[in-house]
Design a protein around this nucleic acid. Sequence first.
DNA 1: GCTTAAACCAAGATGAAATTGGTTTAGCAT
DNA 2: ATGCTAAACCAATTTCATCTTGGTTTAAGC
Lengths: 234, 234
Amino acid sequence: MLAADRPTPEVSLVTQLRAYLAQANLPEDRRLPPERELAGLIGVSRAELRKALDVLEQEGEIWRHVGKGTFVGGRPLDTFADIGALARRSNPTEVMRARLAMEPELARSAAFMATPADIAEMRLCLARSRQAETWRQYEGWDTRLHRTVAEATHNALLLGLFDTLNAVRRAVTWGRLRVQPVKPAPDHHSFAEHERIVQAIEDRDVAGAATAMRTHLQTVERKLLARQDQPSEG
Amino acid sequence: MLAADRPTPEVSLVTQLRAYLAQANLPEDRRLPPERELAGLIGVSRAELRKALDVLEQEGEIWRHVGKGTFVGGRPLDTFADIGALARRSNPTEVMRARLAMEPELARSAAFMATPADIAEMRLCLARSRQAETWRQYEGWDTRLHRTVAEATHNALLLGLFDTLNAVRRAVTWGRLRVQPVKPAPDHHSFAEHERIVQAIEDRDVAGAATAMRTHLQTVERKLLARQDQPSEG
DNA sequence: GCTTAAACCAAGATGAAATTGGTTTAGCAT
DNA sequence: ATGCTAAACCAATTTCATCTTGGTTTAAGC
């Protein structure tokens, strides 16, 4: 381009762009023309335009995404976490790792925050799971025990995260048939491990609660890897 | 079809279908062939097949959806984690506690799984955050650093949980304006703390990474409680 | 050296066509 | 009439090819 086109080089392209953004009436979604087009409109090279857009993006005045375009304003936050999509991208191994990352910390927090009512419910779940006549019943009480621990943190966000994790776990684990006609053996590893978790929480043993939960989940992981016909719950 | 093909009409089509479901090895998603095809396979009319499928659906053994297909097992729960509702029930304190529960474990896992590319991106975020000219810019790089750590776990589920946590954090923190004209001081506590986190991850020091992240978040928590006019990020 | 234009890439949008469960209709045999 | 079958039709959904778009690389040009 000729020098005469830009008689005032001290007026930076960034400023020029800001002026354009203010003047141009953009569509409802505040999307501005594609870079190639915009470069032609303003009369600069695409590379130069992009450098200016980089600045505006750093400033937070615009946001860009490949395939979508460039938009004025802050990046919109998606208000929903899609469990299904998450489950599709994940797998049983990842679920196990995620449980190992989260649940010990939930147990730790529960040991701090649990009320007597929380602990009573945990003990109820323990007892019912021992009385279970089928694996399905056992799984129900097992799931409820783990959720009670999450509830005992008395933190709505942590509980929500646990529920999300749990929903993904169920979605991921769904396919595998578990035709276990027999009921859990009285010496099933989970009974003692669950007991230790609840006891640690009752004793306000924060480190012990986390450790007990981690140990428990590691056992579940080992069984899960060894034999696919075992329930994946724990 | 000839009567000879079905010499035992008392064996209902439903039973026959159940046998088929047990025997056939279905794809990962447990989807069975389209009705038209399945009808041909079994050798019955589509109408008759559908009547049997109706029973199985009633029993809860399968579920169907137009355009999708027919699947064995329970209908997947289409629960979306509602970030907005979660944010409404939560508060900054809970968010902080949730970060303290999750992010050290993410750092620990990242120390295991991070690739050189992950670490390079972390270092980039570090450098940019130091160069930030405004708090807004700093926050952007800080957020990106923390998310890179979550990415470095190479666990889609953990990343999803982190994103959910982060979305709630942003939603909860929404109201508070932070008009901090000055840029972060060169000795801002987070610089050194972030550096320690990344270094531990690079050194494959799993315990150190978790500890560094916990220490960092505790500092953020302290600052947050002491002075509301500080950025809540860290 | 620096800029520019062009090519290339992968993520996302778009739209036509095919697929699929659900429903209706017409034919046909009993 | 009754009951079954095949075919057509419908709307929801997937699939696939194509286009768009920001991001990146490359090489020519000055």
